[in-house]
Design a protein around this nucleic acid. Structure first.
Length: 421
RNA sequence: GUGAGUGUAGCUCAGUUGGUUAGAGCACCAGAUUGUGGCUCUGGGGGUCGUGGGUUCAAAUCCCAUCACUCACCCCA
């Protein structure tokens, strides 16, 4: 048997309505905030991610699905959406059409990690990006948008954590200060932290290891070493969040994995999830546009995981949409009635009502069972008597009642009944 | 890449110290009701016990290997 690829999922008809409803809710909220959709190709030149996300990140160094096409071009299935959005923004010169572009997306992404709860190799993210503004109010709008979507969905058990990672001007000297602090006791830190010390010293700060946390007690904090501009920016973000009544906690150890982040970073977690409890992450990335050979463009955005969101929703018992009911099932008895059925199906369907018949040659009893299984509202019974008298026997499945309706009145009867529901 | 756990019917799971034809619930099909669903009752179909090897008179059960899945580390949505 050929099986699906590890870390991928089939979304079956029974769960698809939940996806559709969630996507509709996202699109609706995005439009209310005046963000507009962008779709980009599923694959890109590998170079885009290598330069945009950073060579040293886990994503680029070991998680990308990269391959050569027939022309020996190196391609990669996109592992995140910010770099492709920025590439499209630059390539299509959107900056020349409007000073500020507010973009959203819903897209499948690919990372070759070992799967676990809330982590897949093909997964879906939705997100938003404000391209062209350095205003801290834009940071807040992005955070507010993300929180509003989760709130519209009905999620309750979520937490917002924020921090500022500064910019190169203050971050670079801070890294040295931090390394100066760690260096004398480096050998006491865990193996991972000893590696992090070289690759990304900021990561040492959010290590979960108890010993490392002890050692970090008196470590210098980045938000105490911000330059004046970054400090002002961060203060404005916090002040505005408070003004909007958005609850948040400051987490001086919050670090983002991707190189392009500057200043504001944030993460939204759900307690309803397992170890992978982040449903949303984002922040400001003022350096990315230039890194990708575009004009200097300040930007801020977020990305949220659809699967994780759906797990959290399920844990909180949130159901956005049930399987739609079937309006009409035609139960046909005998050859002639069977042959008449497709015409009636077409007529009913043309009025926008969902309709079905039996294609398995089943008995009336089995056909009724099938209609019941599909939670049908109305069964149209068509047998010899009905054909002779030019009328349907209509069974109202919810009430269990049965009435006869002449052929030429049946459409208006059904429409009236279904509107009445 | 590393570690742990789990693989028995479509699904959820029983299966006693190895011992006859491997079970239950749900689902599916049929009958009770020869033109009628849901409830009830009766019956039915469906399993190379993940796979390969070994121990044994005898293996779902014990041993080894292998594969798959799950969770966790790392990292992240």
């Amino acid at each position: 048997m050929i099986k699906r690829i590890k870390g991928t999922q089939d979304i079956l008809p029974e769960t698809s309505p939940q996806w559709i409803a969630l996507e509709e809710l996202i699109r609706k909220t995005m439009l209310v905030y005046n963000f507009h959709e962008m779709r980009t190709p599923i694959f890109e030149q590998t170079q885009l991610f290598a330069r945009g996300i950073g060579q040293l990140t886990d994503i680029v160094s070991k998680e990308m699905y990269t391959f050569l096409d027939r022309g020996k071009k190196q391609l990669t299935l996109k592992p995140e959406m910010t770099a492709p959005i920025m590439r499209a923004y630059i390539e299509n010169k959107l900056y020349a059409r409007a000073p500020l572009n507010k973009i959203y997306y819903i897209a499948p992404l690919f990372r070759q990690e070992n799967p676990q709860a809330g982590r897949l190799r093909q997964f879906h993210q939705f997100g938003a990006e404000s391209l062209g503004t350095a205003d801290p109010l834009a940071d807040v709008e992005i955070i507010d948008l993300a929180m509003t979507i989760f709130s519209n969905v009905g999620l309750k058990k979520i937490d917002l954590r924020i921090n500022s990672v500064g910019d190169p001007k203050c971050r670079t000297p801070y890294k040295e200060t931090l390394k100066d602090y760690i260096r004398p006791r480096l050998d006491q830190y865990c193996e991972d932290c000893q590696r992090r010390y070289e690759e990304n010293p900021l990561r040492v700060l959010d290590c979960k290891n108890d010993i490392c946390q002890q050692l970090n007690q008196n470590a210098p904090k980045l938000n105490e070493h911000l330059c004046q501009d970054c400090e002002n920016h961060y203060a404005k973000v916090k002040e505005t969040l408070s003004a909007l009544g958005i609850p948040f906690t400051e987490d001086p150890y919050l670090v983002r994995g991707l190189d392009y982040y500057t200043r504001t970073v944030f993460e939204i977690t759900s307690e309803a999830l397992g170890a992978q409890n982040a449903i949303c992450g984002g922040g400001r990335y003022d350096l990315l546009a230039k890194e990708l050979d575009g004009p200097d463009t300040p930007a801020v955005g977020f990305a949220a995981g659809m699967e994780r969101l759906l797990i959290a929703m399920q844990q909180e018992g949130i159901v956005l949409k049930e399987l739609p009911r079937l309006d009409v099932f035609i139960v046909a008895l005998g050859e002639q009635a069977r042959n008449e059925s497709p015409r009636w199906l077409k007529k009913i369907r043309s009025k926008g009502l969902s309709a079905e018949m039996d294609y398995l040659g089943r008995s009336i009893k089995a056909q009724m069972r099938e209609a019941n299984r599909q939670k049908t509202r109305f069964v149209l019974l068509l047998g010899e008597n009905e054909l002779n008298q030019k009328q349907f026997t209509v069974k109202l499945m919810d009430k269990g009642e049965q009435i006869t309706v002449p052929f030429d009145e049946v459409i208006s009867f059904l429409k009236k009944q279904i509107v009445a529901d």
